[in-house]
Design a protein around this nucleic acid. Structure first.
Length: 246
DNA sequence: GCGACAG
DNA sequence: ATCTTGTCGC
């Protein structure tokens, strides 16, 4: 089945495709590597993020991918792609999925795990960006979002101590009651007012393991290092493509 | 009609 | 996501 994000689809078709993707997705561990392998340096982890050129017609996206192993960057690549549909909550993958795949396709290596910025199973149809791209590439993937799309934290997420996590249960807007992800406080300074990350399975990883992987990636900031690096790289590229054309 | 809503 | 410098607070 071809799940390539086609922006020309009608909204109903996109939603239908997402249900098919969710059916194909695996929300249990189906990966050889463990979070420990990330720490030990035996896993190739790819961080993916984007920056946008919105003052153009059509708008363009700069998709950046940085692959590291044991904290060392081993490859980085990117793609600049035209965007055809606006951002619609729940349909993010149809706007950004194609551009991301364009960048991933230019990769020389084959990552063992992808970290996407956005949701995975924490999605109305359990098919967020991380799940969509994870299923298409059939590669283990994790979604790392900075805010919650849907689902209900089992407990208050305010003043969550560093390193702690709170399960996110599926709510009435979702087709499941299971734990679809975790609120995870990667960094916390003095008083607890920093929002946690919302980590969810993309494909071939369980919610529990997804958080462990994010924790194993480390980093001195809120975002896991692979994501932060991709973030910085995307911004750097954006500056380049802003003043020039090619 | 009202509220909620990844990036 | 993006527009944007300095600034309030620990």
């Amino acid at each position: 089945m071809d799940f390539t994000p086609d922006p020309e689809r009608s909204r109903a078709e996109m939603e239908s495709i997402q249900r098919e993707i969710a059916a194909e997705a695996t929300f249990v561990d189906a990966i050889d590597l463990t979070p420990g392998d990330v720490t030990e340096g035996d896993a190739l982890v790819a961080g993916v993020d984007q920056a946008f050129l919105l003052d153009e017609e059509p708008e363009r996206a700069v998709s950046a991918v940085i692959v590291s192993r044991g904290g060392e960057v081993v490859e980085r690549t990117h793609a600049v792609t035209g965007l055809s549909i606006p951002y619609i909550p729940g349909l993010l993958a149809f706007r950004e999925g194609g551009p991301i795949l364009a960048a991933v396709d230019t990769l020389d290596c084959e990552p063992d795990l992808f970290l996407f910025d956005g949701s995975g199973r924490i999605h109305y149809r359990e098919a967020g960006l991380a799940t969509h791209v994870g299923v298409i590439t059939d590669t283990p993937s994790v979604g790392v979002a900075k805010s919650l799309l849907c689902g209900e934290p089992r407990a208050s997420v305010d003043e969550l101590p560093e390193g702690e996590r709170v399960p996110i249960d599926g709510d009435d807007r979702m087709p499941t009651d299971e734990v679809v992800g975790y609120a995870y406080q990667s960094r916390q300074f003095d008083s607890g007012r920093i929002n946690p990350l919302y980590v969810s399975p993309g494909h071939r990883v369980s919610a529990e393991t997804a958080v462990e992987f994010v924790a194993a990636c480390g980093g001195e900031y809120k975002l896991p290092k692979p994501t932060r690096r991709a973030d910085a790289y995307a911004d750097e590229l954006k500056r380049e493509y802003t003043d020039t054309n090619a």
